[in-house]
Amino acid sequence: DRIFMTRTEALEFLLKAHQTAVDKIGHPSHKQTPADHAAIEALDRLLLDVRARRVDQFQINASAAQIIVTD
């Protein structure tokens, strides 16, 4: 599946995904793992790359739809 978004929409989408990941590892019942921190770092890099126009398409994980940034 493909989803087309403007750059602004894609950045909002990534910010929400980032916040969800941060909230998940901050929850008291969740045991933090290196994979959790790696996922947040990957989202940080992706946010910067989309914002800087170095990336025009991405996929958060293998089961997610491919996001295509349109400007």
Rank of each mutant, 00 (worst) to 15 (best):
D1T: 01
D1F: 01
D1Q: 02
D1C: 08
D1Y: 01
D1I: 01
R2F: 12
R2W: 08
R2S: 10
R2C: 14
R2N: 09
R2E: 06
I3D: 02
I3Q: 05
I3V: 09
I3L: 09
I3R: 05
F4E: 06
F4Y: 15
F4T: 07
F4N: 04
F4A: 05
F4W: 07
F4M: 08
F4L: 10
M5Y: 02
M5L: 09
M5N: 00
M5E: 00
M5F: 03
M5P: 00
T6P: 03
T6L: 03
T6Q: 03
T6C: 04
T6Y: 02
T6G: 04
R7K: 03
R7E: 03
R7V: 11
R7I: 12
R7A: 04
R7C: 04
R7T: 08
R7Y: 14
T8G: 10
T8P: 08
T8R: 11
T8D: 14
E9K: 05
E9T: 03
E9Y: 02
E9F: 02
E9A: 08
E9P: 00
E9V: 04
A10I: 02
A10E: 00
A10N: 00
A10C: 03
A10K: 00
L11C: 04
L11F: 04
L11S: 02
L11M: 09
E12K: 08
E12F: 05
E12M: 06
E12W: 05
E12I: 08
E12P: 00
E12A: 11
F13G: 01
F13Y: 15
F13A: 05
F13Q: 04
F13V: 08
F13S: 02
L14Y: 00
L14H: 00
L14R: 00
L14Q: 00
L14A: 00
L14M: 01
L15S: 13
L15K: 15
L15W: 12
L15Q: 14
L15P: 00
L15A: 14
L15F: 09
K16W: 09
K16P: 00
K16F: 07
K16G: 07
K16M: 11
K16L: 12
A17N: 03
A17M: 13
A17W: 08
A17V: 13
A17R: 03
A17I: 10
A17K: 04
H18P: 00
H18A: 06
H18D: 00
H18L: 15
H18C: 06
H18E: 02
H18M: 15
H18Q: 10
Q19V: 05
Q19N: 06
Q19K: 13
Q19M: 09
Q19T: 07
Q19P: 01
Q19Y: 04
T20A: 15
T20W: 06
T20R: 13
T20D: 14
T20P: 01
A21W: 11
A21F: 12
A21Y: 11
A21M: 15
A21R: 04
A21T: 07
V22P: 01
V22E: 04
V22Y: 04
V22I: 12
V22W: 04
V22Q: 09
V22D: 02
V22S: 08
V22G: 03
D23C: 06
D23A: 14
D23R: 12
D23V: 08
D23Q: 11
D23H: 08
D23S: 12
D23L: 04
K24M: 10
K24Y: 06
K24S: 09
K24H: 09
K24D: 05
I25E: 05
I25W: 05
I25V: 11
I25Q: 06
I25N: 05
I25R: 05
I25K: 05
G26E: 10
G26S: 14
G26C: 10
G26N: 15
G26M: 15
G26W: 12
G26V: 10
G26P: 04
G26H: 14
G26T: 14
H27C: 06
H27M: 13
H27V: 09
H27K: 12
H27L: 12
H27S: 14
P28Q: 09
P28I: 10
P28H: 08
P28D: 11
P28S: 13
P28F: 02
S29E: 13
S29P: 08
S29K: 10
S29D: 14
S29I: 07
S29Q: 10
S29T: 12
S29Y: 04
S29M: 09
S29W: 03
H30D: 08
H30R: 08
H30Y: 12
H30T: 08
K31N: 13
K31G: 11
K31C: 05
K31T: 13
K31W: 09
K31E: 12
Q32E: 13
Q32V: 14
Q32A: 14
Q32W: 15
Q32C: 08
Q32K: 13
T33S: 13
T33D: 11
T33M: 11
T33N: 14
T33F: 06
P34R: 10
P34C: 05
P34S: 10
P34N: 10
P34M: 10
P34Q: 10
P34V: 10
A35D: 10
A35H: 08
A35W: 06
A35V: 08
A35R: 07
A35I: 06
D36G: 04
D36P: 03
D36Q: 07
D36F: 07
D36Y: 06
D36I: 08
D36H: 05
H37I: 14
H37E: 11
H37R: 14
H37F: 14
H37Y: 13
H37N: 11
H37S: 09
H37V: 14
A38T: 07
A38Y: 10
A38R: 10
A38F: 11
A38C: 05
A38V: 09
A39S: 09
A39T: 12
A39W: 14
A39N: 11
A39E: 13
A39P: 03
A39M: 15
A39G: 06
A39Y: 15
I40P: 02
I40K: 04
I40R: 03
I40Q: 03
I40H: 05
I40Y: 03
I40F: 04
I40C: 04
E41W: 03
E41K: 13
E41D: 11
E41L: 08
E41Y: 04
A42E: 11
A42L: 15
A42C: 06
A42K: 13
A42P: 01
A42T: 13
L43E: 00
L43H: 00
L43S: 01
L43N: 00
D44N: 15
D44L: 13
D44Y: 15
R45Q: 14
R45K: 14
R45W: 03
L46Y: 01
L46G: 00
L46H: 01
L46T: 02
L46E: 00
L46C: 02
L46A: 01
L46R: 00
L47K: 02
L47G: 01
L47Y: 09
L47F: 09
L47V: 06
L47H: 03
L48P: 01
L48I: 14
L48C: 08
L48R: 15
L48Y: 04
L48W: 04
L48A: 15
L48K: 15
L48E: 15
D49F: 02
D49M: 07
D49T: 02
D49W: 03
D49K: 03
D49H: 04
V50S: 00
V50F: 03
V50W: 01
V50N: 00
V50H: 01
R51S: 14
R51M: 14
R51E: 13
R51V: 10
R51Q: 14
R51L: 13
R51K: 13
R51P: 03
R51T: 09
R51I: 15
R51H: 11
A52D: 14
A52F: 11
A52G: 07
A52S: 11
A52H: 14
A52V: 05
R53T: 04
R53I: 03
R53K: 13
R53Y: 07
R53G: 15
R53N: 12
R53L: 07
R54G: 03
R54D: 04
R54W: 04
R54H: 07
R54S: 05
R54Q: 05
R54E: 04
R54V: 12
V55C: 05
V55S: 03
V55K: 04
V55F: 02
V55L: 08
V55G: 01
D56I: 14
D56C: 08
D56V: 11
D56S: 14
D56K: 12
D56N: 15
Q57T: 13
Q57S: 14
Q57K: 11
Q57H: 14
Q57W: 09
Q57I: 13
Q57M: 13
F58Y: 02
F58N: 00
F58S: 00
F58M: 01
Q59Y: 12
Q59P: 03
Q59D: 03
Q59I: 09
Q59E: 05
Q59N: 05
Q59A: 05
Q59G: 03
Q59K: 08
Q59H: 08
Q59L: 06
I60G: 01
I60M: 08
I60V: 07
I60W: 05
I60S: 03
N61L: 08
N61P: 10
N61R: 06
N61S: 13
N61G: 12
N61T: 13
A62V: 09
A62E: 13
A62G: 15
A62C: 06
A62Q: 10
S63C: 08
S63V: 10
S63N: 13
S63Y: 10
S63E: 13
S63F: 11
S63R: 11
A64I: 08
A64R: 07
A64S: 14
A64V: 08
A65W: 05
A65Y: 10
A65V: 15
A65L: 12
A65P: 14
A65R: 06
Q66M: 15
Q66K: 11
Q66F: 13
Q66Y: 13
Q66D: 04
Q66V: 15
Q66C: 07
Q66L: 15
I67R: 01
I67P: 00
I67Q: 01
I68A: 03
I68M: 06
I68N: 04
I68H: 07
I68V: 11
V69K: 01
V69H: 01
V69S: 01
V69M: 06
T70R: 12
T70L: 14
T70Y: 09
T70V: 13
T70G: 04
T70K: 11
T70C: 11
T70M: 14
D71E: 08
D71C: 05
D71F: 03
D71V: 09
